[in-house]
């Protein structure tokens, strides 16, 4: 379990980092190494150059901007776990962060790294899609922003170009009704199913509900039918049950040694029910 040979660079500026990344089609960004280092050790990835972002300035910090919080790509999970801004303004992130691996790994792994990795079991992709976050990227063609709906397009696949670097994520704070549910056999395990639900409560109904599922369906995706249901009905126990049934009917879960498709379908239904109940409480 030793990685194959690669070149390692640790640029001091964002421009240098972009230049290195653009210099070789097999160059990859290293930002903490939570997922990339095991892939290298297992020889499942063989990048030519690793561009380590750890000395690149300007990618850190958690900034409250009023209707959103701007989170730097190099912010570690542990920093999110300990941030009072996050706890106050984005409690959904605080509730999810403890599900990410273990404290040692959370101290190394980064918010931007996990987001760009777009792991279908990832807590951040599931939540960022549910809150409608905006990704900030920079590359040889300049800066651009990408909405979460256009960012996560498949398992381990985002619309970030190979020569682009994710610098920040802007997370809206206006969705004050939220729930995050994860079913993992043991703490720190990959979840068998993840569900996130958010919306803005007004007069007993939920405006613009967004409900996402991760892990169980092989990618991170929204549950449009459930969202429609929640947008049209008051949040009651009966609606929570109906949302569960709707969710189960609208997904095509994966099967593997950790749980077959039927099991995961039931699990997602249970998590959606729990999530809608929590939204009820929040509203």
């Amino acid at each position: 379990m030793k990685p194959p040979k690669f070149r390692y660079v640790a640029p001091r500026t964002l421009d240098d980092a972009i230049e290195h990344l653009a210099s070789d089609p097999d160059a990859k960004v290293l930002s903490g190494g939570q997922s990339l280092m095991p892939l290298l050790a297992m020889r499942l990835a063989a990048p030519s150059i690793l561009v380590d972002l750890q000395h690149v300035p300007g990618l850190d910090g958690i900034e409250d901007q009023g209707t959103s919080v701007l989170i730097g790509a190099r912010v570690t999970h542990r920093e999110i776990e300990r941030s009072s801004v996050i706890a106050e303004r984005l409690p959904i992130l605080s509730s999810a962060v403890v599900h990410i691996a273990h404290p040692q790994i959370r101290s190394r792994g980064t918010f931007g790294g996990s987001t760009a990795h777009a792991d279908p079991s990832g807590e951040w992709p599931t939540i960022l899609l549910a809150v409608g976050a905006t990704m900030h990227a920079v590359g040889p063609r300049g800066r651009r922003t990408i909405g979460a709906d256009d960012f996560f397009v498949g398992p381990f696949t985002s619309t970030l170009a190979e020569d682009e670097i994710l610098t920040h994520v802007s997370v809206p704070t206006t969705r004050t009704a939220w729930s995050f549910q994860e079913a993992a056999v043991k703490k720190g395990d990959y979840g068998l199913a993840l569900v996130a639900a958010t919306g803005t409560p007004r007069d007993g109904v939920l405006l613009d509900p967004r409900v996402t599922v991760g892990a169980a369906v092989g990618s991170v995706r929204r549950l449009a039918e459930v969202e429609r249901l929640l947008a049209e009905a008051p949040l009651t126990e009966a609606v929570a049950d109906e949302a569960a049934v709707t969710a189960a009917a609208s997904i095509d879960p994966i099967s593997d040694i950790h749980g077959n498709s039927e099991y995961r379908r039931k699990l997602v239904a249970s998590l959606v029910r729990r999530a809608v109940r929590e939204l009820t409480n929040g509203a």
Binding site: V185, H258, L267
Partner: peptide
């Protein structure tokens, strides 16, 4: 496994 147990509970 959770799958077997949930299957049994169903």
């Amino acid at each position: 496994t959770p799958e077997k147990v949930l299957g049994a509970m169903s």
